[in-house]
């Protein structure tokens, strides 16, 4: 029985390692992407000195992303995610871009409106959500949200514009309600707990009037 268990465990370990090795073909993907660019005058030399290991590139090529049809002739005209996203402020997950930081630092300057008469509304108001059990308190900053979105995107369809009036909890967020309408789908994923649960409780209690 014990021998069986050892056999199973070693087989699993071996196969898991194989999976990871196979999964690491992405830097290779990017190389092939890079070679699509203007051909360099000098062919790559075999005697290139050993360079530090390449970091794993998290962005797949469009042709290998399981969505795009590689037979589509227009595919060659499209921008590759790695080309655009690798130069922006990094994050651990999602698009591997910290979009708020990218906007703040001016790495990107996305248009705020197409119609000239549209009013651009930005609100600088932090909201503390203290009913977070053992987790640090949630600080919801209106500013980065309104730099991307308009008030009407959330109010009052997703959130009533009244403190304490929204029965938000993680279960409903994970179901795609409240914050989960965007976070976990387009904006940073729900696995980045600390980006919302960002204020230690003691500190929050000092800030909130009794």
């Amino acid at each position: 029985m014990a021998r069986n268990l050892v056999g199973y465990l070693s087989a699993i370990t071996f196969l898991a390692a194989a999976v990871f090795l196979v999964g690491c073909d992405r830097p290779g993907d990017l190389e092939s992407f890079a070679t699509k660019g203007p051909p360099s005058a000098e062919p790559a030399s075999v005697n290139v000195p050993a360079s530090p290991p390449e970091p794993v590139i998290p962005w797949a090529l469009l042709a290998h992303d399981n969505l795009h049809d590689p037979r589509n002739p227009s595919l060659a005209l499209m921008q590759e995610p790695a080309e655009a996203l690798s130069v922006l402020s990094p994050a651990q997950e999602g698009n591997f871009v910290n979009w708020v930081a990218a906007l703040r630092s001016g790495e990107i300057s996305p248009r705020t409106n197409v119609y000239p008469e549209t009013k651009i509304r930005v609100l600088d108001l932090d909201v503390l959500m203290v009913d977070t059990a053992a987790m640090p308190v949630v600080l919801f900053p209106h500013r980065p949200h309104t730099e991307w979105l308009d008030c009407s995107n959330c109010h009052d369809k997703i959130f009533v514009a009244k403190s304490g009036a929204n029965p938000v909890n993680m279960f409903r967020i994970l179901q795609g309600e409240f914050c989960g309408q965007c976070h976990g789908a387009v904006s940073f994923p729900l696995t980045q707990c600390q980006r919302c649960h960002s204020v230690p409780r003691e500190q929050a209690l000092q800030a909130v009037p009794k």
């Binding site: 921008q79 995610p81 655009a84 996203l85 698009n95 871009v97 979009w99 990107i108 996305p110 248009r111 705020t112 409106n113 197409v114 119609y115 549209t118 730099e147 991307w148 979105l149 308009d150 009407s152 995107n153 387009v186």
Partner: peptide, 15 residues
């Protein structure tokens, strides 16, 4: 990803 480099969410989801 491609669109949010060039436009904010509010352009499509509001305007």
């Amino acid at each position: 990803w491609f669109h949010r480099i060039r436009f904010r969410c509010k352009v499509c989801h509001h305007e």
